[in-house]
Protein backbone atom coordinates (compact mmCIF):
# COMPACT_ATOMS: atom_id res chain seq x y z
CA UNK A 1 0.00 0.00 0.00
CA UNK A 2 2.78 2.37 0.95
CA UNK A 3 4.44 1.78 -2.39
CA UNK A 4 1.40 2.71 -4.43
CA UNK A 5 1.09 5.84 -2.36
CA UNK A 6 4.61 6.88 -3.24
CA UNK A 7 3.93 6.27 -6.91
CA UNK A 8 0.71 8.15 -6.91
CA UNK A 9 1.97 11.30 -5.23
CA UNK A 10 5.60 11.15 -6.27
CA UNK A 11 7.69 14.29 -6.17
CA UNK A 12 8.83 13.62 -9.68
CA UNK A 13 5.47 14.47 -11.16
CA UNK A 14 5.26 17.69 -9.25
CA UNK A 15 8.58 19.15 -10.19
CA UNK A 16 7.65 19.63 -13.83
CA UNK A 17 4.62 21.68 -13.04
CA UNK A 18 5.93 24.92 -11.64
CA UNK A 19 5.49 28.06 -13.63
CA UNK A 20 3.07 28.95 -16.34
CA UNK A 21 1.22 26.08 -17.93
CA UNK A 22 -0.13 27.90 -20.94
CA UNK A 23 0.89 30.29 -23.66
CA UNK A 24 -0.96 33.57 -23.39
CA UNK A 25 -1.03 34.25 -27.13
CA UNK A 26 -2.26 30.82 -28.05
CA UNK A 27 -4.95 31.16 -25.38
CA UNK A 28 -6.31 34.35 -26.90
CA UNK A 29 -6.48 32.89 -30.39
CA UNK A 30 -8.46 29.96 -28.98
CA UNK A 31 -10.89 32.34 -27.32
CA UNK A 32 -11.34 34.25 -30.53
CA UNK A 33 -12.45 31.08 -32.29
CA UNK A 34 -15.16 30.70 -29.67
CA UNK A 35 -16.14 34.32 -30.20
CA UNK A 36 -16.45 33.66 -33.92
CA UNK A 37 -18.86 30.84 -33.11
CA UNK A 38 -21.10 33.31 -31.28
CA UNK A 39 -20.86 35.77 -34.14
CA UNK A 40 -21.76 33.02 -36.56
CA UNK A 41 -24.95 32.35 -34.60
CA UNK A 42 -25.72 36.04 -34.60
CA UNK A 43 -25.52 36.07 -38.38
CA UNK A 44 -27.49 32.83 -38.60
CA UNK A 45 -30.35 34.47 -36.69
CA UNK A 46 -30.22 37.51 -38.96
CA UNK A 47 -30.21 35.28 -42.05
CA UNK A 48 -33.21 33.37 -40.72
CA UNK A 49 -35.02 36.64 -40.11
CA UNK A 50 -34.24 37.86 -43.59
CA UNK A 51 -35.43 34.63 -45.17
CA UNK A 52 -38.72 34.84 -43.26
CA UNK A 53 -39.27 38.43 -44.33
CA UNK A 54 -37.87 38.54 -47.83
CA UNK A 55 -41.24 38.15 -49.54
CA UNK A 56 -42.93 40.70 -47.31
CA UNK A 57 -42.51 43.74 -49.54
CA UNK A 58 -45.84 45.34 -48.61
CA UNK A 59 -46.33 46.43 -52.19
CA UNK A 60 -43.02 48.29 -52.15
CA UNK A 61 -39.84 47.61 -54.10
CA UNK A 62 -38.50 44.05 -54.01
CA UNK A 63 -35.04 42.57 -54.59
CA UNK A 64 -35.40 42.63 -58.36
CA UNK A 65 -36.10 46.34 -58.48
CA UNK A 66 -33.29 47.25 -56.09
CA UNK A 67 -30.32 44.96 -56.56
CA UNK A 68 -27.75 45.96 -59.12
CA UNK A 69 -25.82 42.96 -60.44
CA UNK A 70 -22.69 44.91 -61.36
CA UNK A 71 -22.66 46.65 -58.00
CA UNK A 72 -22.79 43.57 -55.80
CA UNK A 73 -20.43 41.66 -58.06
CA UNK A 74 -17.87 44.43 -57.64
CA UNK A 75 -18.33 44.38 -53.88
CA UNK A 76 -17.84 40.63 -53.82
CA UNK A 77 -14.72 40.80 -55.97
CA UNK A 78 -13.21 43.52 -53.78
CA UNK A 79 -13.89 41.74 -50.52
CA UNK A 80 -12.57 38.40 -51.78
CA UNK A 81 -9.41 40.14 -52.99
CA UNK A 82 -8.98 41.78 -49.59
CA UNK A 83 -9.17 38.37 -47.97
CA UNK A 84 -6.35 37.26 -50.26
CA UNK A 85 -4.18 40.29 -49.42
CA UNK A 86 -4.93 39.72 -45.75
CA UNK A 87 -3.58 36.18 -46.19
CA UNK A 88 -0.47 37.65 -47.85
CA UNK A 89 -0.04 39.98 -44.86
CA UNK A 90 -0.07 37.01 -42.48
CA UNK A 91 2.38 35.19 -44.73
CA UNK A 92 4.96 38.00 -44.84
CA UNK A 93 4.51 38.51 -41.11
CA UNK A 94 5.68 34.93 -40.54
CA UNK A 95 8.72 35.72 -42.67
CA UNK A 96 9.36 38.78 -40.52
CA UNK A 97 9.13 41.21 -43.45
CA UNK A 98 7.88 44.30 -41.76
CA UNK A 99 7.60 46.63 -44.75
CA UNK A 100 5.78 44.06 -46.84
CA UNK A 101 3.48 43.51 -43.92
CA UNK A 102 2.67 47.21 -43.69
CA UNK A 103 2.02 47.25 -47.42
CA UNK A 104 -0.34 44.26 -47.54
CA UNK A 105 -2.17 45.29 -44.41
CA UNK A 106 -2.73 48.75 -45.86
CA UNK A 107 -3.96 47.28 -49.12
CA UNK A 108 -6.38 45.06 -47.21
CA UNK A 109 -7.74 47.95 -45.18
CA UNK A 110 -8.09 50.13 -48.28
CA UNK A 111 -9.97 47.40 -50.15
CA UNK A 112 -12.20 47.08 -47.09
CA UNK A 113 -12.78 50.81 -47.18
CA UNK A 114 -13.69 50.64 -50.85
CA UNK A 115 -16.13 47.83 -50.12
CA UNK A 116 -17.82 49.82 -47.36
CA UNK A 117 -17.94 52.87 -49.62
CA UNK A 118 -19.69 50.89 -52.36
CA UNK A 119 -22.14 49.47 -49.85
CA UNK A 120 -22.94 52.90 -48.46
CA UNK A 121 -23.52 54.25 -51.96
CA UNK A 122 -25.82 51.29 -52.64
CA UNK A 123 -27.80 52.13 -49.51
CA UNK A 124 -27.96 55.80 -50.45
CA UNK A 125 -29.27 54.87 -53.88
CA UNK A 126 -31.96 52.65 -52.32
CA UNK A 127 -33.05 55.35 -49.93
CA UNK A 128 -33.21 57.89 -52.74
CA UNK A 129 -35.93 55.79 -54.40
CA UNK A 130 -37.83 55.64 -51.09
CA UNK A 131 -36.68 52.12 -50.32
CA UNK A 132 -35.98 52.87 -46.65
CA UNK A 133 -35.69 50.56 -43.68
CA UNK A 134 -39.21 51.50 -42.58
CA UNK A 135 -40.81 50.77 -45.94
CA UNK A 136 -41.40 47.03 -45.50
CA UNK A 137 -40.41 43.90 -43.62
CA UNK A 138 -38.21 42.86 -46.54
CA UNK A 139 -36.26 46.13 -46.50
CA UNK A 140 -35.90 46.03 -42.70
CA UNK A 141 -34.35 42.59 -43.01
CA UNK A 142 -32.17 43.58 -45.94
CA UNK A 143 -30.69 46.74 -44.45
CA UNK A 144 -30.10 45.12 -41.09
CA UNK A 145 -28.44 41.97 -42.38
CA UNK A 146 -26.22 43.69 -44.94
CA UNK A 147 -25.65 46.64 -42.60
CA UNK A 148 -24.54 44.41 -39.73
CA UNK A 149 -21.97 42.83 -42.01
CA UNK A 150 -20.90 46.31 -43.13
CA UNK A 151 -20.47 47.41 -39.51
CA UNK A 152 -18.33 44.36 -38.86
CA UNK A 153 -16.15 45.23 -41.86
CA UNK A 154 -15.84 48.85 -40.69
CA UNK A 155 -14.79 47.72 -37.25
CA UNK A 156 -12.24 45.42 -38.87
CA UNK A 157 -10.78 48.37 -40.79
CA UNK A 158 -10.37 50.40 -37.61
CA UNK A 159 -8.82 47.38 -35.96
CA UNK A 160 -6.32 46.93 -38.81
CA UNK A 161 -5.49 50.62 -38.62
CA UNK A 162 -4.67 50.26 -34.96
CA UNK A 163 -2.47 47.23 -35.61
CA UNK A 164 -0.77 48.99 -38.52
CA UNK A 165 0.13 51.80 -36.17
CA UNK A 166 1.58 49.30 -33.69
CA UNK A 167 3.57 47.47 -36.35
CA UNK A 168 5.13 50.73 -37.46
CA UNK A 169 6.04 51.63 -33.88
CA UNK A 170 7.06 48.29 -32.42
CA UNK A 171 7.83 45.98 -35.31
CA UNK A 172 6.66 42.36 -35.36
CA UNK A 173 6.51 41.22 -31.74
CA UNK A 174 4.83 37.99 -30.62
CA UNK A 175 1.91 40.02 -29.27
CA UNK A 176 1.47 41.80 -32.58
CA UNK A 177 1.76 38.54 -34.45
CA UNK A 178 -1.08 37.25 -32.30
CA UNK A 179 -3.19 40.34 -32.97
CA UNK A 180 -2.61 39.93 -36.68
CA UNK A 181 -3.60 36.29 -36.55
CA UNK A 182 -6.82 37.23 -34.80
CA UNK A 183 -7.74 40.10 -37.09
CA UNK A 184 -6.97 37.80 -40.01
CA UNK A 185 -9.39 35.20 -38.66
CA UNK A 186 -11.99 37.92 -38.27
CA UNK A 187 -11.47 39.17 -41.81
CA UNK A 188 -11.72 35.73 -43.38
CA UNK A 189 -14.82 35.04 -41.29
CA UNK A 190 -16.47 38.19 -42.67
CA UNK A 191 -15.56 37.02 -46.13
CA UNK A 192 -17.31 33.71 -45.56
CA UNK A 193 -20.37 35.54 -44.23
CA UNK A 194 -20.33 37.67 -47.37
CA UNK A 195 -20.33 34.60 -49.57
CA UNK A 196 -23.58 33.57 -47.90
CA UNK A 197 -24.92 37.10 -48.18
CA UNK A 198 -24.04 37.20 -51.84
CA UNK A 199 -25.83 33.90 -52.42
CA UNK A 200 -28.89 34.21 -50.19
CA UNK A 201 -29.61 37.90 -50.49
CA UNK A 202 -28.31 39.03 -53.85
CA UNK A 203 -28.17 36.01 -56.17
CA UNK A 204 -31.39 34.44 -54.95
CA UNK A 205 -32.91 37.91 -54.95
CA UNK A 206 -32.34 38.63 -58.62
CA UNK A 207 -32.87 35.08 -59.86
Amino acid sequence: MAVTKEDAWGVQARSQTTGSTHDENELRVAGFWVFLATDMILFACLFATYIVLRGNTDGGPGPRQLFDVTGFTEETFILLTSSFTCGLATHVMHEGRRRALVLWLSVTALLGLLFVGLEVSEFVRDVSVSATISRSGFLSGFFTLVGTHGCHVSLGILWMGSILFQVMRQGITPAIARKLTIVGLYWHFLDVVWVFLFTVVYLMGVM
Binding site: T49, N56, S136, T144
Partner: peptide, 30 residues
Protein backbone atom coordinates in the same frame (compact mmCIF):
# COMPACT_ATOMS: atom_id res chain seq x y z
CA UNK B 1 -28.00 30.99 -26.85
CA UNK B 2 -27.16 34.61 -26.16
CA UNK B 3 -26.62 35.70 -29.78
CA UNK B 4 -30.30 34.94 -30.42
CA UNK B 5 -31.28 37.34 -27.64
CA UNK B 6 -28.93 39.96 -29.03
CA UNK B 7 -30.65 39.65 -32.38
CA UNK B 8 -34.20 39.60 -30.98
CA UNK B 9 -33.60 42.72 -28.90
CA UNK B 10 -31.53 44.43 -31.58
CA UNK B 11 -34.27 44.02 -34.17
CA UNK B 12 -36.90 45.16 -31.70
CA UNK B 13 -34.81 48.26 -31.01
CA UNK B 14 -34.48 48.95 -34.73
CA UNK B 15 -38.25 48.62 -35.02
CA UNK B 16 -38.73 51.08 -32.19
CA UNK B 17 -36.17 53.73 -32.99
CA UNK B 18 -35.90 53.48 -36.79
CA UNK B 19 -39.47 52.49 -37.58
CA UNK B 20 -38.49 49.18 -39.18
CA UNK B 21 -40.97 46.33 -39.58
CA UNK B 22 -39.49 43.14 -38.20
CA UNK B 23 -42.18 42.34 -35.67
CA UNK B 24 -44.84 44.94 -36.37
CA UNK B 25 -48.41 44.06 -37.30
CA UNK B 26 -48.38 45.96 -40.58
CA UNK B 27 -46.03 46.59 -43.53
CA UNK B 28 -44.91 42.98 -43.63
CA UNK B 29 -43.64 42.46 -40.09
CA UNK B 30 -43.92 39.09 -38.38
Amino acid sequence: AFPALTVALGLLLIDRVAGAHFFSMDHGGN
